[in-house]
Amino acid sequence: MYVLTNVVKNYSRGRQAVAALRGVDLVVRDSEWLAIQGPTGHGKSTLLQIMGALDRPTSGSVELGGIDLSALREAALTRIRARSIGFVFQTFNLIPTLNAADNVAMALVPPHIAAAERQSRAEEALTAVGLAGRLRHLPSELSGGEQQRVAIARALVKKPQVLLADEPTGNLDEGTRDEIIGLLENLWREHGLTMVTVTHDSSVAARAQRIGQLKHGRLAIPPSAPRSPDQGPATGPAEHRRVR
């Protein structure tokens, strides 16, 4: 479970201070799917990076499973990223010189898994996302949707507890978007993941259990317990309440 308390993030741009997050409070329960929407530049990606231990808040605390990430040293954060958190990026971020299986296997290097097992688990993960026939293809030989499937396989191959997706369908056409979001939904159900998705796309956000709106660094989100996956999609901003 994530518990964010009064999270503030300021950047300095030259002599000017920019407030990316202005006191965000948020609780994400285990196995919940939360979508965060908001205009570009209003702090969505910053919030996701702080939740993913890629960045530290200027103030406030970020707890994951009862551990305050903001108090940990970099080495401990690296371990948490290696074991507990999977990332999916808008631009896929695959390594262009490695084939699909090797890209996925990269996620199993930090946990010190043997090379042969890395390969077999990578192939399993790629098969699970429908890419059994594309194991040895380079990213440049794959479509956008296939590249995002590789990225999803890479995020999930280490069996993380959390999946953080930053605009996972932002670079895809509508048809591929629906395929990818359907895949994410299936994997979320199947693995019992805690999933946080940042998106511009209301139709993507609507598939989540709860939707938060982040504007000018402030998060508005319904505090109620999320619906179960079987209760259907969230209806959107009508059920939001400004928390801070």
Partner: peptide
């Protein structure tokens, strides 16, 4: 990306 994957 490698750092995000947990590479030291």
């Amino acid at each position: 990306t490698l750092k995000a994957l947990g590479w030291r």
